[in-house]
Amino acid sequence: MVIELSQAAYGYDGGELLAELDLHIPPGSFHFLTGPSGSGKTTFLKLCYMELLPKRGSARILGRDVREMTRDDVAFTRRRIGVVHQNCEFLDHLPLAENLSLPLSVAGRDTAEAAADLEELLSWVGLEARRNALPPELSGGERQRAALARAVVTSPEVILADEPTGNIDWDMAQRLLRLLIELNRMGKAVVIATHDMNLIRAAKAHVPARVLRLRGGRLQLAGADL
């Protein structure tokens, strides 16, 4: 399993936002996480990439118990997880190509050797002409695709995307979805937090995606209405 949650719970300021989370995400699976705003989708993903630790219960990410990980362990594990945020954060002073190779740099890998792969990646997300642009010069759709490219540059085992189509039009959303489906077919586990039902329906037409719903802090398997 790439992600295993067992009776995991998390809350802010003494309250409990998420509780009794039981979930096993196997390699190569495709999951949607849906629910109304404020239901805890982002918090759930943060538990998955260890920005937050469960207050109760347990979480194992890529086979390791998160509570037993050192800060370096967390860093090493994050290199095997690709994260795409709704508000894609980049280093604004670096050109796009350097931003995309950042995960390789921090992992101590030779980015010169990976230059060809990087070009291929830029081409894959349709940003080869924007390689020297600074992040503030990119449109919303370009930023989302760039965030996806950065998330997969180290060939991670799981991709977590938080409202990846929140700020882009439907055409661009479909394009991004196709990229995520392509990654899933390459064997990556994909978890997408979204409240965009059209996106989920579009995905289910191509991949056997499971849809999870957060309601009242609990995780439910969504029904056939999706």
Binding site: R71, D72, A75, R78, R79, L102
Partner: peptide, 16 residues
Amino acid sequence: ARVIGVLRLVGAQDSY
């Protein structure tokens, strides 16, 4: 702080 957040997200160790 934002730069550090991005670096942590992509797997940078504290020492880096």
